[in-house]
C-alpha cells in the first residue's frame, strides 16, 4: 500500500513543486522586465497618511492636475502642495467633509488642522511612482511638449488609491523617446 502511495505522491509533489517554481520564476522575470503581476497586493498603491481621493478632486471638483502640482511645467518635480494650500481651499470652500457621502471624509479632512498653535506637520506622503536608480527625470520638458499627465500616470482621475500603471523602466522611456524623436543620448537622463 505504502509503495503505491509513494508511486502516486512523488509525481504529484514534483508537479506541484514545479508549478510553484515556475510561478516564482514567472513572477521574478516579469518584475524584472516590467512590473510584478498584480497578485498578493503587489499592484496596489500604498496606503497614504491621509486617504486623499483624486477622484473627488479631479472629477467632482474639476481641478486641473497643475492646480495642486504647481511646478510640473517648470521644474524637475511636479511638486506636492503644501498643507497650507489644502487648508486654504478647504477653508475657502467650507468643505469639511460633513456634506460628503463618504463616512471617512470628515476625519480625513480634519487631519489637515493639526496642532492649533504649531499648525499642521507636513504630510509624509508615501511615494507611489518609482523610477530606477541613476536617472534624472524632469517633468518640465514633458509637460511643455504637450504630454498629458495621464500618458505616464494613467487615469488618476478615476483612482481612489493612486497606483503606478506604467513600469517606467528604461525601455519604457527610450521607446517613448524614439517614437517622439526626443533625444536618446545617455546624458539626456544619466548625469
Amino acid at each position: 500500500m505504502s509503495n503505491s502511495l509513494i508511486k502516486i505522491a512523488v509525481p504529484v509533489i514534483g508537479l506541484v513543486a514545479a508549478l510553484v517554481l515556475a510561478f516564482v520564476a514567472y513572477f521574478f522575470v516579469l518584475a524584472w522586465w516590467s512590473q510584478p503581476p498584480a497578485v498578493l497586493g503587489f499592484g496596489d498603491g500604498p496606503t497614504q497618511p491621509i486617504a486623499f481621493p483624486h477622484t473627488v478632486h479631479v472629477t467632482t471638483a474639476g481641478l486641473d492636475c497643475q492646480f495642486c502640482h504647481r511646478i510640473a511645467s517648470t521644474e524637475e518635480a511636479a511638486g506636492v502642495p503644501a498643507v497650507a494650500q489644502c487648508q486654504f481651499c478647504h477653508d475657502f470652500t467650507r468643505i469639511t467633509g460633513e456634506e460628503s457621502d463618504s463616512p471617512t471624509a470628515e476625519t480625513e479632512i480634519a487631519k489637515l488642522i493639526g496642532d492649533p498653535l504649531e499648525g499642521p506637520d507636513p504630510i509624509n506622503w508615501v511615494r507611489v511612482h518609482r523610477l530606477p536608480d541613476h536617472v534624472q527625470f524632469v517633468h518640465a520638458p514633458h509637460i511643455q511638449q504637450g504630454f498629458s499627465c495621464s500618458t505616464c500616470h494613467g487615469d488618476i482621475a478615476s483612482m481612489e488609491v493612486v497606483e503606478q500603471v506604467r513600469n517606467l523602466k528604461m525601455r519604457d522611456c527610450v521607446d517613448c523617446h524614439r517614437d517622439n524623436e526626443a533625444p536618446t543620448d545617455c546624458t539626456t537622463c544619466h548625469y
Binding site: D133, H134, D185, C186, T187, H190
Partner: peptide
C-alpha cells in the same frame, strides 16, 4: 563616449 554636443561623457551606471 563622445556625445553629439562635443562632450566627452561618463555614464556612471555603466
Amino acid at each position: 563616449y563622445h556625445n553629439n554636443e562635443g562632450l566627452n561623457v561618463q555614464v556612471y551606471n555603466r
